[in-house]
Design a protein around this nucleic acid. Structure first.
Length: 832
RNA sequence: GCGAGAGUGGCGGAACUGGUAGACGCACUAGACUUAGAAUCUAGCCCGCUCGUCGGAUGGGGGUUCGAGUCCCCCCUCUCGCACCA
């Protein structure tokens, strides 16, 4: 052991040793309990950033601690290697996306190794590898066969800058989630995955995810957005046909005084044609469709389309409007408008002079007057003006009116979701090719399994304009139809990269398998992921898609079901969403110029300091404010431990003296601190995931014995033994956080076994027992005195001792004590 | 607007089920060591004063309780998510 702590020498030495020993390689072993610890894999952007350091340190602490606990721990890493930055680099710098990605992976892999993360590197995978995405192509074709993948022309979110389509989840505030430019609507033929078919299971599964943050579950439930109501049909007046609407308020149907259609609704053009309104409707539709989604969200505009429909129950004539706020993509793209009981319809009716009809009267309130209501009444109540349904509560009426609609043939119960099917086509090069062929004679033809993978060709040109480079590659596009053999065209779109990240955690269980996607035995053993760690920004995107994919793969028979029969199959048992790394009040980003490079940290202080700082500065789920001085503090703590141990190495390394018959009070106090610390750290790491307080507890322990370690052993043998125990425990408890320095010190003063084989310490209950506890005496709620007593002192006795305190007597001042509370081991409370 | 979370020293943060508020770290102050500095060690470090085992203090106001940072009600501020989903 060197006199002075040299992090680089220590870290290189142990990293080399772990590699040589295959220390973190794991195999499926049914005889041992498993623990699957996973962090969200990185996009190989070039270099790791502090967010990665934090994310992967948290995961590594958990992985290493569970290993010490005896679990067979799988801790894998890989690369989310497809995506637009690689293509942009090609356009800007001429580097091929494949080379750019490969070089980035090489650099970042070296960075992760220098951090000392305990990955099983044999399981490493990159999603741009054809050996990976070929399975995805097969899953897609299986989905196609089952109708879970389909092609349709639809209005899509188009990002001009990225020249591609975006899923709804990738549009934030009307802007592209990656480049933040405005998104426009565009009509395109796209491939979709039928995630809506799994809406109910995805929703039900949320209730079983007890190990997820409530906030993420709330976001997912809201995103799925299940609403129960009815579909009702309103017959057109004077011609064949009807308007289908979805409503969650069938109880208010008698209050409908008009019907609103989305401007994209086919009946808008059809019904207005030839009427006096035709020109006005055309102009309005053009105006609205030219708007960006956020512009469109501003007002509640609309126009009468010159046609009427009939109320299904009263036969009344209702005008039909086209309205900007009605969404074609939700429900039937049409709504029955009930001004008195829906605020949007209320406002719309006001500006267009449409009558309002009250049909729900809130109970226990004076009757509402539709002509003087300041706002719609959207709450419940009893029905009025609704014929045979008058007097029913809203809830009763919902059921009765829906039943009536069904019986009379103008509607039925229906459920709608906010969730839309997942559009997976991207007009980009650097992604997995979609394995289908278009044949003039046979239509859409899947690429036969034997011809998979459809490999992404390397010889594309990257100009940055004119759409996908793949479409310009004749030798790729021109192919023959697998069915009829005639000339055909390949699909030139590639998959959304969220496809690859939706199943990588399954592939880690059998990374080298060339003949099949998964090994069922391995899946059954390792899944679900016991702890998943990643950024909250994926609360709906990645985490919803991955849950969906897991269920689909089960239904396709690709993976076994590891849950109880009838339960939703969930991939991630526990989820920890870590906060962002902040500097000067803002997220670290190149554009803000507030980035701290992990390489600099590791060079200057070493990986253990970088790890310790990112753990200690804040609890994991909260944002972490960067602090140069905080890093200094972390480094100082490691140097301090080194120094303390180096000072006492002469006697600390010897075998601990067996506990002498009657240890001194000093020794007992230190032993108690040691075992209290074990209990606290274990609780913080395993149950609370409060790694910052776990480290603080170890620091307290060190403070408790540091000054007693001199070059010479203390004269008190019992104390010497207690110190040796305390130091060893310190190193064991720190091992998951700062594994290099812990290994080095353990080699010097450990119990002879390698640290890798040392178990996590167990708190000794007997050592925790206190001889005496400090009792507090409160008078009228204020602390007025203290005394010490044995923890098992009787309550009567404690009361007597409390009253004997002169300070307490002074406060009581002869007044009668009206009430007493004794909490043994804590306090005596007196009221006068 | 709706939903979720959070407001504690100069700073990051502790206080888990109501029981000594401010653990741990940073910064700061004084002292020791040193030619000097760095490093290290020792002590102090919420505010106030009449310097006491004193008074006040966990965004503001009220309540429950012997006792509230913690529970309940009202208000203020901040962060995040969703925002015409019929």
């Amino acid at each position: 052991m060197e006199h002075r702590y040299d992090p680089h020498a220590v870290e290189q030495r142990w990293q080399a040793r772990w590699d040589a020993d295959g220390a973190h390689e794991v195999r499926t072993d049914a005889s041992r309990p498993k623990f699957y610890c996973l962090e969200m894999f990185p996009y190989p952007s070039g270099r790791i950033h502090m967010g990665h350091v934090r994310n992967y340190t948290i995961g590594d602490v958990i992985a290493r601690q569970r290993r010490m606990r005896g679990f067979n721990v799988m801790h894998p890493i890989g690369w989310d290697a497809f995506g637009m930055p690689a293509e942009n680099a090609a356009i800007e710098r001429g580097a091929h996306p494949a080379e750019w990605t490969r070089d980035n992976i090489a650099y970042m892999r070296a960075q992760l190794r220098r951090m000392g993360f305990s990955y099983d590197w044999r399981r490493e995978l990159a999603t741009c590898d054809p050996g990976y995405y070929r399975w995805e192509q097969r899953f897609f074709l299986a989905m196609l066969e089952r109708g879970l993948a389909y092609r349709k022309k639809s209005i899509v979110n188009w990002c001009e800058r990225c020249q591609t389509v975006l899923a709804n989840e990738q549009v934030e505030d009307g802007k592209c989630w990656r480049c933040e430019s405005s998104v426009r609507e565009r009509d395109l033929e796209q491939w979709f995955l039928r995630i809506t078919a799994y809406a109910d299971e995805l929703l039900a599964g949320c209730d079983r995810l007890a190990g997820w943050p409530e906030k993420v579950l709330v976001m997912q439930r809201h995103w799925i957005g299940r609403s129960v109501g009815a579909e009702l049909r309103f017959a057109l007046e004077g011609r064949e046909g009807e308007i289908l609407v979805f409503t969650t308020r069938p109880d208010t149907v008698f209050g409908a005084t008009f019907v609103s259609l989305a401007v994209e609704h086919p009946l808008v053009a059809a019904l207005s044609r030839g009427t006096a309104q035709e020109a006005a409707v055309d102009a309005f539709v053009r105006e609205v469709r030219a708007k960006t989604p956020e512009e469109r969200a501003e007002g509640k505009d609309g126009v009468f389309i010159g046609a009427y429909c009939r109320h299904p129950l009263t036969g009344e004539r209702l005008p039909i409007y086209a309205a900007s706020f009605v969404l074609m993509a939700y429900g039937a793209g049409a709504v029955m408008a009930v001004p008195c009981h829906d605020q949007r319809d209320f406002e719309f009716a006001g500006t267009h002079g449409i009558p309002k009809k009250l049909v729900v009267q809130p109970e226990g309130e004076p009757p509402l007057d539709p002509t003087h209501m300041p706002a719609a009444h959207e709450g419940p109540g009893r029905l009025v003006g609704s014929g045979e349904f008058d007097g029913l509560t809203s809830d009763e009426a919902k059921a009765r009116i829906t039943a009536a609609a069904e019986a009379r043939g103008f509607g039925r119960a229906a459920t709608q979701y906010r969730l839309r099917d997942w559009g997976v086509s991207r007009q980009r090069y650097w992604g997995a090719p979609i394995p289908v062929v278009y044949c003039d004679a046979c239509g859409i033809v899947p690429v036969p399994d034997a011809e998979l993978p459809v490999v992404l060709p390397v010889d594309a040109e990257f100009t940055g304009s004119g759409g996908s480079p793949l479409a310009k590659l004749e030798h790729f596009v021109r192919t023959s139809c697998p069915t009829c053999g005639r000339e055909a065209r390949r699909e030139t779109d590639t998959f959304d990269t969220f496809m690859e990240s939706s199943w990588y955690f399954l592939r880690y269980t059998a990374p080298g398998e060339a003949a099949r996607a998964f090994d069922g035995e391995a899946i059954r053993y390792w899944l679900p992921v016991d702890q998943y760690v990643g950024g909250v920004e994926h609360a709906v995107l990645h985490l919803l898609y991955a849950r969906f994919f897991t269920k689909v793969l089960r239904d396709l028979g690709e993976i076994p079901d590891w849950e109880e029969p009838g339960e939703s199959l969930e991939p991630f048992g526990n989820l920890l969403t870590q906060g962002m790394v902040i500097k000067d009040g803002a997220k670290m980003s190149k554009s803000k110029g507030n980035v701290v490079d992990p390489d600099y940290l590791v060079e200057r202080y070493g990986a253990d300091t970088a790890r310790l700082f990112s753990i200690f500065a804040a609890p994991p789920e909260r944002d972490l404010e960067w602090s140069d001085q905080g890093v200094e503090g972390a480094s100082r703590f490691l140097h301090r431990i080194w120094r303390i141990v180096a000072r006492g190495r002469g006697w600390l390394a010897g075998a601990p003296a067996a506990g002498s018959a009657a240890p001194s009070a000093d020794a007992r106090v230190l032993r108690r601190l040691t075992h209290k610390t074990i209990a606290r750290v274990t609780e913080d790491v395993e149950r609370r995931s409060h790694f910052n307080t776990a480290v603080a507890a170890v620091m307290e322990l060190v403070n408790g014995y540091a000054e007693r370690i001199r070059e010479e052993a203390p004269a008190d043998d019992g104390l010497g033994a207690a110190i040796v125990e305390a130091v060893r425990v310190t190193i064991l408890l720190l091992a998951p956080f700062v594994p290099h320095i812990a290994s080095e010190i353990w080699e010097e003063i450990g119990d002879g076994r390698p640290l890798a084989a040392a178990p996590w310490p167990e708190a000794d209950e007997a050592a925790l027992v206190q001889d005496e506890v400090e009792m507090v005496v409160q008078v009228n709620g204020k602390v007025r005195g203290r005394f010490t007593a044995a923890p098992d002192t009787a309550e009567d006795e404690l009361l007597v001792r409390a009253l004997a305190d002169p300070k307490v007597q002074a406060q009581i001042a002869g007044k009668p004590v009206r009430k007493t509370h004794v909490v043994p081991g804590r306090l005596v409370s007196l009221v006068v």
